[in-house]
Computed example of a mutant assay.
Amino acid sequence: MSSNSLNSQNMKLEVVVLPVSNVDQAKDFYKTLGWRLDADFVTGEDFRVVQLTPPGSEASIIFGSGVTLAAPGSVQGLYLIVYDIEAARAELAQVEERLRIDTRIGILINNAGVSTASSFADQSPDEVAKIINLNITAVTRLTSAVAPRFAKTGDGTIINISSVVGLAPEFGMTIYGATKAFVLFLTQGLHLELGPKGVYVQAVLPASTRTEIWERAGWDMNAVPPTMEVDELVDAALVGFDRRETVTMPSLPDANQWKTFDAARQSMIPNFNQVNAAARYHLVS
């Protein structure tokens, strides 16, 4: 068959194989996005295949056990395209409008987040923008939509999932850490602004937790250090919620370390606004 005859054929991409480490978690994640579950077949003890399809897509994804030898999280560069960006923005506007007016919503939990296994120098501008859009822009827009109503009624709760990475550039996750530092700052600022009006604002700072974010970021789960289970993290966050903590760090054994850190930060505030530069920056004549 000649190349010309091949070029004349209609060709469609039907399936993309995704290597995952936890089939059930991956299945639940894509179902929460509204993807159609086409199949979940088990054959014997070592083979299982799950197929899901995004709304309106002619291509599907499959994953499972014994489906591929590729390492979990190794697939990179796949993009889910929205054909009508204005319609997507309209849907976001509907969510924001509901947060503004629906008095049945008394708690906003900003839990979505995304990262990547590559370093900042290896990330494209589009990859950086994707992280910022979800970790910062979405959090800010949803919070901005609900905060005025909470402040007016004098109640309501905003829970923002930050990360200890936002306090530790040494971890090397520069963009992800920067976005989580923003979430922590946003929470502390809202606590000062909305707290006196009756609104409770909490930042939860997990460390390594066993969620699908690792695979989606491209990490090899076999190389990831021991992680906290989600159930334990949630239980600890709820204890912090009951105690009305502004900052909850489930993995930190000694709470006084955070208190000392925050006290040191606050102790600098009176010295920030000076007319002259500090003596150590004066030129020696």
Rank of each mutant, 00 (worst) to 15 (best):
V42R: 13
V42P: 04
V42N: 12
V42F: 11
V42G: 05
G44Y: 07
G44K: 07
G44R: 08
G44L: 10
E45V: 09
E45N: 14
E45P: 10
E45W: 03
D46H: 14
D46A: 13
D46F: 11
D46K: 14
F47I: 09
F47D: 00
F47V: 04
F47L: 05
F47H: 12
F47Q: 08
F47N: 02
R48Q: 13
V49H: 00
V49F: 02
V49Q: 08
V50S: 03
V50C: 04
V50K: 03
V50P: 00
V50Y: 05
Q51K: 10
Q51N: 09
Q51P: 00
L52H: 09
L52G: 06
L52Y: 10
T53N: 10
P54R: 01
P54Q: 00
P55I: 05
P55A: 12
P55C: 06
S57A: 14
S57V: 09
S57Q: 08
E58W: 00
E58P: 00
E58A: 12
A59R: 01
A59M: 08
A59L: 01
A59Y: 01
S60L: 02
S60V: 04
S60K: 10
I61V: 14
I61R: 06
I61N: 04
I61K: 07
I61G: 06
I62F: 00
I62C: 10
F63Q: 01
F63H: 02
F63G: 01
G64E: 00
S65R: 15
S65H: 04
G66D: 07
V67C: 03
V67P: 02
V67K: 02
V67E: 00
T68H: 07
T68G: 02
T68D: 04
T68S: 14
T68M: 06
L69I: 02
L69P: 06
L69C: 05
L69V: 07
L69W: 04
L69M: 14
A70Y: 08
A70F: 11
A70H: 13
A71Q: 14
A71G: 06
A71D: 14
A71P: 01
P72K: 12
P72L: 13
P72N: 11
P72E: 13
G73D: 15
G73Q: 13
S74E: 15
S74K: 11
S74I: 15
S74C: 14
S74T: 15
S74R: 13
V75I: 15
Q76P: 13
Q76K: 15
Q76I: 12
Q76E: 15
G77I: 12
L78K: 07
Y79D: 07
Y79N: 01
Y79E: 05
I81N: 03
V82Y: 09
V82T: 03
V82E: 03
V82M: 00
Y83I: 01
Y83F: 02
Y83W: 01
D84A: 08
D84R: 08
I85P: 01
E86P: 05
E86I: 03
